[in-house]
Amino acid sequence: MYRPEVMKRIAWNRDVFTFSRIVCALTIGFLLLPLLVLAAYSFNDSRTMSWTGFSTKWYEKLFSGSPDLWRAFRNSIVIAIGSGAVATAIGTLGAIGAARYRFRLRGYVQTIGFLPMILPEIIIGVSLSMFFAGIGLKLGLFTIFLAHVSFNLPFVFLLVSARMEEFDYSIVEAAYDLGANEIQTLTLVVLPTIMPGILSGFLTAVTLSLEDFVITFFVSGPGSTTLPLYIYSMIRYGVSPVINALSVLMIAGTALLAIPLRKFLKDFAVH
């Protein structure tokens, strides 16, 4: 005869211990483990990686004894917002143009709007480095800015283009029909409609810029240190536990940014 408890066991097996559940749990654990280790060591009293006791001294040192770090941080922020804004403006216009019109250079726009994204970063870094040297531009914050706009542009273009694909052109015709001119149609109808795409483009650009190390490494000069470059030098030439404290704060910052944006995370994942 049929026994309910047998059925329960089967249901349990089917729903909980599936292969994908186990892999997913392990993978997410794997992704989080290093962050937790960093967090733990940031409160370690010792300079070495061996645990000796609880202390917040590295946090104090981060805030009071690391002026270079904060200068690098400021550089990063300025470049991220500046390059993000420029890339967003240029990329959005490009995406609108490529989606709405057929013109001679459209194929070229779509190719150069795609290629930089799929080439390894080091190639972009090396080629820009040679280019700047070739035209005699002194490597510094300005060249970093130019490079960041360049690698951010394709991402903005892609994200806004995706929005334009779903765009209902009848509203543009409606706007013309109701007497709007090109500029009014653009600012009152097109841009507000694709605003989510523009915003995610801008946020992606800012994130990528803040994050970039490889390209920046090749186009930076003396005195133009960004946060990733500073972190790199800390890791490479003299590890101080201050970096642990910094990591924890940055991870916390990321999480704090991600939580209010959680409704949009799914959109974010699409790219």
């Binding site: 997410i28 992704l31 989080l32 290093p34 962050l35 960093l38 994130t207 803040l210 994050e211 190390f213 946060l227 990733p228 972190i231 790199y232 890791i235 970096i243 910094l246 990591s247 940055m250 991870i251 990321t254 999480a255 940014l257 991600a258 939580i259 959680r262 995370l265 974010f268 994942a269």
Partner: peptide
């Protein structure tokens, strides 16, 4: 969220 937080954490860190 659990995937994106490490993803957004600085690569070098």
């Amino acid at each position: 969220l659990l995937v994106i937080v490490p993803f957004w954490t600085n690569f070098l860190l």
